[in-house]
């Protein structure tokens, strides 16, 4: 009899499946927590700001956007963006902006207007 013959196959498989399941659950919980944290950190506009990969970068850009928009109204902007993003993806909305010539600047960087405004909301919520 070898050492390997001493290990039962069925309990081993069950253990591996269990570990994998725990891992998936754990990973999902971590991701959910991370998104929740990001939304929470983005404040009232977390549902919009969470569409951007880098909240800190978005805030940095957003402050520059707001500096060029003295009459920026966060609530109204958020309402308008939510309406658009409820039926279209961010990619579609930005493509539509660019096709229509709607751009805004963040410290001179020319950005699609919707993207610039989401950044502005990130800054406004901070």
């Amino acid at each position: 009899m070898t050492w390997r013959a001493g290990i039962e196959r069925r309990p081993l498989l069950a253990g591996l499946v269990g570990a994998l399941g725990l891992g998936i659950l754990g990973g999902g919980a971590y991701e959910a927590a991370r998104i929740l944290h990001r939304n929470e950190k983005a404040g009232a506009y977390g549902d919009l700001v969470s569409r951007l990969p880098d909240p800190d970068g978005a805030r940095l850009l957003g402050h520059a956007v707001i500096a060029g928009l003295p009459r920026f109204n966060a609530a109204e902007t958020a309402r308008s963006l939510r309406k658009a993003l409820a039926i279209h993806s961010l990619a579609d909305v930005t493509a539509s902006d660019l096709a229509a010539g709607r751009v805004a600047e963040a410290g001179g960087w020319v950005l699609p207007e919707s993207l610039a405004l989401i950044c502005a909301l990130a800054a406004a919520a901070a």
Binding site: L52, P53, D54, G57, A58, T94, W109, P112, C119
Partner: peptide, 16 residues
Amino acid sequence: DDLAKAAVAAAANALG
């Protein structure tokens, strides 16, 4: 600079 990197990342993400 940092603002430029943020602009590149945000724009690239939005455009896919």
